[in-house]
Design a protein around this nucleic acid. Sequence first.
RNA 1: GCGGACGUGGCGGAAUCGGUAGACGCAGCGGACUUAAAAUCCGUUGGCCAUAGGCCGUCCGGGUUCAAUUCCCGGCGUCCGCACCA
Length: 853
Amino acid sequence: MTRYNPKETEPRWRKAWDDAQSFRTRTPAEAGDKPKAYVLEMFPYPSGRIHVGHVRNYAMGDVVARFKRAQGFNVLHPMGWDAFGMPAENAAMERGINPKAWTYENIAAMRDQLKMLGLSIDWSREFATCDRAYYGRQQRLFLELYKRGLVYRREATVNWDPVDHTVLSNEQVIDGRGWRSNALVEKKKLTQWFLRITDYADALLDGLKTLEGHWPDKVRLMQENWIGRSKGLRLSFRLAEPAPAAFEALEVYTTRPDTLFGASFLAVAPDHPLAEALAAQSADVAAFVADCRRGGTSEAEIEGAEKKGYDTGLMVEHPFDPAIKLPVWIANFVLMEYGAGAIFGCAAHDQRDLDFARKYALPVHPVVLPNGADATTFDVGAEAYVGPGRIFNSRFLDGMEIEAAKVAAIARVEEQGQGEGATVYRLRDWGVSRQRYWGCPIPIVHCLKCGPVAETRLPVDLPDDVTFDVPGNPLLRHPTWKHTTCPTCGGAAERETDTLDTFVDSSWYFARFTDPDAEPPIDREAADYWLPVDQYIGGVEHAVLHLLYARFITRALKDDGVLGVEEPFAGLFTQGMVTHETYRVMANEPRFVSPAEVEQQNGALVEIATRLPVEVGDPIKMSKSKKNTVAPEDIFATYGVDAARLFVLSDSPPERDVQWTEAGVEGSWRFVNRVWAEAEAAAEAVQIDADEAQTVALRRATHKLIKAVTEALSSFRFNAGIAQFYGFLNTLKRLDKADLAQRRAAVQTLIVLINPIAPHLAESAWEKLGGTGMVVDAPWPVYDPALAMDEVLTLPVQINGKRRGEVFAPPGASQADVEAIAMADEAVMRHLEGVTVRKVIVVQDRIINIVAN
RNA sequence: GCGGACGUGGCGGAAUCGGUAGACGCAGCGGACUUAAAAUCCGUUGGCCAUAGGCCGUCCGGGUUCAAUUCCCGGCGUCCGCACCA
């Protein structure tokens, strides 16, 4: 017996697959009537090295792709690089390396590492988003959208990342900090390019319903909340005299028109045009507005932020009774970007309004009476009442339920011509301008005569000769690049120096993969054949970023006729992270040390170099700063790729985090060797026909395995599937009497089943057993349902719900038979002494429960 | 604050239709092999009492049911998302 030797076998099989072009995508013609399956993992950013998280992500995708292949699907399983972005520029600034050279070197290094994983990828389709061939075509798509009016430019208050010197989208601001730099984001006014994602708010929201059951509920819910559709009323309050010129009325948005009679004030955002107009005339107002701007947006600041207001002295008339006058305030808690940038405050039924009213001694008028409360005594204290009830103190709305009152109030306002029912969204348009070099140049030329015009001379190339010695956008200060002529009038003009958010790059790459050599950005025929992606796999961190943008771009391109599908990803799976314990040496200066720097000593961990004791922390996401990372190459060198693939899939359900442990990989490595040992042993035997010569027990065990593994792999329960293999090996051991020839047939089936998970091992074992060709081409086994169950079932017998014994019966035995067998059981009879049987429940092939007392 | 998920041995987890709780792995314990160790193999492993056998047990409290880890109500805890969104 020899030990399995991954160092020898793994490279050999990768070359064999390569030579045989095993993973070349078949054309639709070649595929014939085979159904297609597009399996895709979120493409990586080329940081330079793969980490264990990549191993898990791509191992999962590979299992699905190989499984589908074996099941007879025509599979597309490509790989590429999300290659634009900040780190390349940071490397340039820190180390003086050219971003392009840095990126392509990283791609080369990571490609080698990824190839080591033995993925069933069609590498001939590989591209990087920073390839001229890709971003040039992206510019063409951008101009398509521009022509359709989905691109516009406006001055906007933007999220400015002071560290990365660029604008961030709302989606990229996490707790008030930049998602990459972690710097506190500032508000800044800049002229920016936007994509009209809000035009698609309803479509994107409604489209989520079609993904039900195919996308995680969590992700659909997050997108739903992010889009944040709310139905309400826009209405205008007439300003009472004297009002500033140009402000005859003040528009507000509300979702609670039923509480209009409870209004006690109006409030506008500090950056509302009215507030700005007043600030221009009054130093007091200006000071207040400036004070509001200083407030940060971080969690802690919002939590502790006090409601602040400034009474403008202006009054408005209530739409239902001009005699009722309400004061107009400027309030720090009103957001300009949402609704109308102004609200009416109903203190009794909104907590924020109540807090504000209490602070500034504004009146509180309850208008919703909780069921069972007394109208003459009901009042709110420190807590606003937001529950159900009937409207009161509200004239024509009195006595109505909340929903009925909303309808009635909206109808009255519309009738008066003072407003209309409206739907507003939390979602804002997607700001795509980035003041960075390493991205796709926005193909627009600014002409003094013509204004901004589409650049027709595509692609707009990124210049290679740029400098990073000072912060800011190198394109802006490049001596010649931006100077050009107007494509319309031929006069002198300047190029747009902003580049596109890299999330634009990843919003259509999956379509480009369907024909990466096509002259148009997307070959409609290829895209129609392959799209949508049948199974997309990636991290949940993209739930509202990439996954929302890609859905938007797909819909926009469909409306352009460029694509034929509305949803890019028919199935989505979000995998969990790989975690590791943290190790810390508690010296004078406590410091983290890496798993490679510690070892066991007398049952405790010590740092190898210093022998100092190591404190073990909870498993958390692997990160450089916590030093709790392991290098995939080291694992591959010690245990082989297949043991690593097995481990990342075996210990936890794939959607949950998995904790990387040395002991766990060793377990997988043991398993690899057990399979290999079985193959070696079985290879000594002659080949037989399993159906004719195998014992029934072994045949049944084999068919049960096929059934269980097929079901596990179909439903992303890889951990449960792998457990089946362990169980099967244990069964083989117990059936030791079965002769080797019989086992050989069983092992052969196991090899085909394990191929998607441990492909190198499977090929080696297949070869050892003299299988035809390579196992990569072997069809998926089919089980016989009649054989995939036990010959005799063990049925527990309960008496009054407590398990008192077990009896044996063949599957499908009649209720009467099973009951008779149970009643004759010795243990059962003993427990039934002295009591009367009232009822016997027999669940077919499951259980017997006897009710007795 | 709003929304959501989850809570099972020492640990990761299984039980996907309401039907034997703890599959499978890790760690532990005992043994074989070895001069010894590693590796490997065999056995054992939820807790408590015990001779057979029994009692308890899936975060806590209640409920529905012949039967609840699973369904319902109320708590507690952990994690995730959003967050002054009118």
